[in-house]
Each structure stands twice: as C-alpha cells, then as structure tokens.
C-alpha cells in the first residue's frame, strides 16, 4: 500500500525539479534524493501517477511525459520566465495555471495558433492577465472532458 507521505514527497520533488530545470526527473534520480532504492522509486513513481492521473508517463516507459501544468515532453505552449524559455505547458488550458508555479514573476506563454501558425502571446503574473495578443485569443475544448477519453489529450 502506498505511503501517502512518501507519495507527497516524490510529487513535490518532481514538481520542484520541473520548475527548476524545465524537465521531469527520472525515477533513478528521485531514488537517491528520497532515500529509496532505484526499484522502490520506480514503484513509487507509479503510485504518484495513479494519484495524479491528469499527468502521464510516456507509453510503455517510466519516463514522465506530462506533469501538469508543465510538460517534460515539449508542446507548442512555450513558457518563459525572466526571459528564459525552458518550460512547456501540458496544453493551452494548463498554460494559464503555470503562473502559480512562479509567484511574483511574469510568466510568458507563447504558442502558434493551430489554424494559421501565427504566434499568440499571453503574459500573466500571480494569476492576473497582463498581456493578451491578439486580444481575441480564446480557449477551446474539442471533445468534452468525458468524451475526450481515448482522444489525443492535446485536443
């Protein structure tokens, strides 16, 4: 049975590493930090992902692909903080939540429109919209939350 304190600790370490480096750690890296054997860390990672099902491992691997609001696997939603672009958001919706990972900082979201390829820009700080360009930027859910099961998650 999963130890909730250990699950919390691993979750926290993954999220912190993503914020600090822009990529998710491998379970073998988490093992040393958390005082686990490598295989204990691998199994613990599965517990974390079960408890946080809005993220996912790359299929048939133990690589963390998505850990929202950020993504270790690059997406079109590029996140920059203090002029440094090293993060990606899981999707356009989660991109608006990345602001909460960088308190007191301006978070810049840049992405190409999937229709025309032209860039959109949204800047936020502490949950407030600072810049929206063009002003007509809109969110869209293509399949509905329930019906999106089994559909590519980025749709």
């Amino acid at each position: 049975m999963a130890d909730p304190r250990l699950t919390d600790r691993m979750f926290h370490r993954i999220m912190r590493t993503l914020v600090e480096t822009g990529r998710a750690p491998h379970y073998a890296e988490l093992a040393r930090v958390l005082g686990l054997t490598v295989d204990e860390a691998r199994r613990q990672l599965l517990d974390v992902m079960e408890a946080y099902p809005i993220g996912w491992l790359h299929p048939e691997t133990h690589y963390i692909a998505s850990f929202p609001p950020l993504n270790s696997l690059p997406t079109q939603y590029r996140i920059s903080v203090r002029g440094e672009q090293k993060w990606f958001a899981q999707c356009g919706f989660e991109a608006t939540s990345a602001t909460w990972l960088f308190p007191g900082r301006t978070v810049r979201i840049e992405a190409p429109c999937l229709d025309c390829g032209d860039t959109m820009l949204v800047e936020m700080r502490d949950g407030r919209l600072l810049t929206v360009n063009p002003r007509t930027v809109v969110g869209h859910l293509n399949y509905g939350f329930g019906a999106s099961r089994g559909k590519p998650p980025y749709l």
Partner: peptide, 11 residues
C-alpha cells in the same frame, strides 16, 4: 484543450 487566435480560427 488549446488556445487559438479567435473563434474564427478554431472553426
């Protein structure tokens, strides 16, 4: 779950 330049671009 995407952002678009406008509703017209979504359609």
């Amino acid at each position: 779950m995407n952002l678009f330049r406008s509703e017209e671009h979504v359609r």
